[in-house]
Design a binder for these strands. Structure first.
Lengths: 207, 207
DNA sequence: AATCGGACGTGACAGATGTCATGATTCTTT
DNA sequence: AAAGAATCATGACATCTGTCACGTCCGATT
């Protein structure tokens, strides 16, 4: 958490305290890496980065306050010298695509061996990209997000168990319009009904 | 991973390789704790435990091959000298109840501070119980699982987006019966529809 | 022997859902 | 200026869902 005698200076952002501490401990076992800060969400991470100006940020995606994806975009704008590695549970093509669009240099899955984390940090620090190859392939042939913003809003709410009428009132639409959007989403995703459609969209990282 | 000169000997089971390695690294930083084995699922954990006879097993719940809950029950039977600490993301009353029924001595959430893990291991090793207090309170007043086995089976499939007819065919029931069970589940859970019911049941740890 | 809960069924009905045709409006791109 | 896409709408229709009343059968408890 202090000086870096030529070491790669890293900040870790992750909302699960236990995992945050554990990842930091893991990186600290590497002789050429120093963890110079931790954060429990995106907003916190931005503050710490402004102070520490680290070489690399390792961040989860799903966090309160500010998503890792939003965080990556902010870091690119405000602290371009800090390279971002996304570290997440989710092998979702949509997440990968958004991460790369947001300027992330690495996308790593939590179910890979622990040794890959340090290796990814080193590579990204050297200016290389690190992307899980299987996921990259899947992202390639699963195509882009076919949903419009409205469809996404409505499908999201449908997935929470809300009825067409409830969704219509919430978004100030007519019930028929909501049913139309859902019908569109169902057909675009090749789903059998709204629940199925929400599941598929979630799995792809489109919700 | 080797000798334990009076140290507490611990095995960690967790399916996400990165988290597994990180948790091990975290525990290894403690002077009185030694990690003598790792496992990526329940079955693997049983093998390692038979060899190592550790003092404490720290295990996740949701793993392939064998759940942490099943694992806890097996360990109580076959290796009663090993005490079990469940370490999970999910603050679900149903999980806690099942964990305690399975003989686990500790139930810890991954979003607690990292320092609590070592402390929990020490306490459990001393014969004490460690249960997240908030979760324990919630478990107490949320009552027991109200669903019957059939209702659970059917609600699970409904949550996957299957129609009543599909579920009926899969379970060799009439469509009307499936609708009746769903109706029962919806009313027991105070839900608005099948999607809502599945959400609630999942959140409680009953699915 | 009587009671109770779980599993399973039917029939009927109202309301929710999914589909389709058809159209208006607006904004962007060619 | 024309074409395309996204937003929003209506009406009509068939199907799916959720509820209720009312049963049967079985195994465990009393």
């Amino acid at each position: 958490m202090r000086e870096g005698n030529g070491k790669i200076r890293v900040i870790v952002a992750e909302d699960q305290g236990m995992v945050l501490g554990a990842l930091a401990a893991l990186l600290e076992t590497e002789p050429d890496i120093a963890v110079c800060g931790k954060a429990a969400n995106g907003r916190e991470a931005l503050t710490v980065i402004a102070k520490q100006k680290p070489d690399v940020l390792v961040t989860d995606i799903e966090m309160p306050e500010m998503t890792g994806l939003t965080l990556a975009a902010e870091v690119r704008q405000r602290h371009p010298q800090t390279r971002v590695v996304i570290l997440t549970t989710f092998a979702r093509p949509g997440y990968l695509r958004r991460a790369l669009d947001a300027g992330a240099k690495g996308y790593l899955l939590k179910d890979r061996p622990a040794a890959e984390l340090a290796e990814a940090v080193r590579r990204v620090h050297r200016g290389l990209r690190v992307v899980d190859p299987d996921l990259a392939a899947e992202a390639w042939d699963s195509g882009p997000d076919p949903l419009t913003e409205r469809e996404r809003q409505i499908l999201w709410r449908a997935g929470e168990g809300k009825s067409s009428l409830e969704i219509a009132e919430e978004l100030r639409l007519s019930e028929g319009t909501v049913r139309n959007y859902l019908s569109e989403a169902i057909s675009k995703l090749g789903a059998a009904n709204r629940i199925d459609a929400a599941r598929i969209a979630r799995a792809k990282g489109w919700l």
